[in-house]
Design a protein around this nucleic acid. Structure first.
Length: 186
DNA sequence: CGGGTTTGACCGGCGC
DNA sequence: GCGCCGGTCAAACCCG
């Protein structure tokens, strides 16, 4: 059915400052890369340490555009109406999406994810994948979808904030921090 | 054998 | 009410 992808994607557009497809080189064969601007705009500290708390709301104004937020709020409001069902969780969860240019669908963000579903979505010739953080007490989710418009672009949508540190990053960072502490004494 | 993925079924919301 | 659609479940499967 969804062989073509003519209509515009329902995806909220990120501001050009975050991501500018037009600036992308035409040659697309590259190792997994996150656009530098995107990396800069992410508040990795709070993201990784889970400092923003599950209370969200006061999450740092990282990279979501107003339009993205508005779109999400609308969706949250709809979710609020949900009364029964298996996932009666909390609905007002911080969410943000960003696009990366990558040949690989799964970008290694340091966390461990378990895939729990895959769906073909309308207006896209590529399926959307659903992942959950494998950490026992952490129910952060993310969706990964490749743009059919530009197949070199992958859209990743995170939902929720990790309530645990990123093991992988800590592993890498710990010796570094120790070194910094050592040199800081001089 | 334990952890992950695959994949069809299922469920709830929404528009008509 | 019905059908479509997106999100999730869970059994089967895969792999180191």
């Amino acid at each position: 059915m969804e062989g073509q992808d003519a209509p515009p994607l329902p995806l909220p557009q990120l501001p050009p400052s975050l991501f500018s497809p037009s600036l992308l080189p035409s040659s697309s064969l590259q190792p997994p890369f996150i656009e530098p601007q995107v990396l800069q705009d992410i508040d990795w500290v709070s993201l990784l340490s889970g400092q923003s708390g599950v209370g969200d709301q006061n999450r740092p104004p990282t990279m979501e555009s107003a339009s993205v937020i508005a779109e999400e709020e609308k969706k949250e409001n709809k979710d609020r109406m949900r009364k029964s069902g298996r996932i009666m969780k909390k609905h007002s969860r911080p969410r943000f999406a960003f696009q990366t240019r990558s040949a690989d669908d799964i970008l290694d963000d340091g966390y461990r994810w378990r895939k729990y579903g895959q769906k073909a979505v309308k207006n896209s010739s590529y399926p959307r994948s659903y992942y959950r953080c494998t950490h026992p007490t952490c129910n952060v989710k993310k969706q990964v979808q490749r743009l059919s418009k530009d197949t070199s672009i992958v859209v990743t949508t995170y939902e929720g904030i990790h309530n645990h540190p990123c093991e992988k990053l800590m592993e890498t960072l710990t010796p570094l921090l120790k070194q910094m502490q050592f040199f800081a004494r001089f």
